[in-house]
């Protein structure tokens, strides 16, 4: 009965965690200002003339031009963020900082989750094994060994 309650509690916690994760991943953060949109889009794109810098960080001329274009498109209000990013990516191929969740690139997102699940599963198996080993009952041979040791302890000079 006690074990059943424990499993039920773990299951409920798992379901709750999954629901919260799904909610967090899909919820809309609500309307943001134009400046916030420009910043968010700029952070998703790499500067085409500098190594490892985003459009948001870079002061290069090309990055400034792209930032201006993002600002212009945000102000025009005709494209959503993903469409603006796609437009810049179409002009500067390879400028996406984060890989898309499609094809082989999706492994970047999937593998850490798989590793986490495998790690958690491994821990559960190991803990269960340890617990089972802890439940071992002493048999008659064990009792004999303990009795002999006690005898030796009570009379350590015996046999000298």
């Amino acid at each position: 009965m006690k074990r059943l309650k424990g499993r039920l509690a773990w299951s409920m916690m798992g379901v709750l965690a999954a629901v919260l994760l799904a909610f967090g991943a899909t919820r809309s953060s609500g309307p943001s200002t134009q400046e916030e949109r420009i910043d968010a889009i700029s952070k998703r794109l790499a500067c085409p003339t500098c190594n490892g810098e985003s459009i948001y960080v870079s002061r290069a001329s090309a990055a400034e031009s792209i930032r201006n274009e993002i600002a212009r498109q945000v102000a025009a209000g005709q494209r959503v963020d993903d469409e603006i990013v796609a437009y810049i990516e179409s002009r500067f191929p390879g400028s996406l900082l984060l890989p898309p969740g499609e094809g082989v690139d999706s492994l970047v997102w999937i593998l850490p989750v798989v590793a986490l699940v495998c790690g958690f599963g491994g821990l559960v198996v190991v803990f269960r094994k340890w617990k089972r080993e802890g439940d071992v009952q002493a048999n008659a041979d064990d009792a004999g060994v303990v009795a002999a040791a006690l005898r030796d302890y009570e009379d350590p000079t015996e046999g000298l």
């Binding site: 003339t49 001329s61 090309a62 031009s65 201006n68 274009e69 212009r72 002009r91 500067f92 191929p93």
Partner: peptide, 13 residues
């Protein structure tokens, strides 16, 4: 002046 033409053509350098 704001690099619109350069971005439209994908000119970085």
């Amino acid at each position: 002046p704001d690099g619109t033409i350069a971005v439209a053509f994908g000119v970085a350098k």
